[in-house]
């Protein structure tokens, strides 16, 4: 029997919590962080595009005056 086998049989609840629930909730946290980051980046890109369009429009109308 390896050290891990002995440990898991002596501490089954710690094995279950750390091995499965902690890992699952860590994965959920990473996923939430990635989704939030993606939204932040996408919003920044859309805002930049909008600003660039506004500037281009201002330049165009400014040139006509």
């Amino acid at each position: 029997m390896s050290g891990l086998d002995i440990w898991m049989r002596e501490n089954p609840l710690a094995y279950v919590w750390l091995g499965s629930y902690a890992v699952a909730f860590f994965i959920f946290t990473i996923e939430i962080a990635m989704v939030r980051h993606k939204r932040k980046i996408t919003l920044q890109q859309v805002r930049l595009m909008r600003e660039a369009e506004d500037e281009a429009r201002d330049d165009k109308f400014g040139g006509n005056d």
Partner: peptide
């Protein structure tokens, strides 16, 4: 992935 991972953790003992 979580299904496979937790299944492996259950399978060992």
């Amino acid at each position: 992935f979580i299904s496979l991972w937790t299944g492996a953790l259950w399978g060992k003992p």
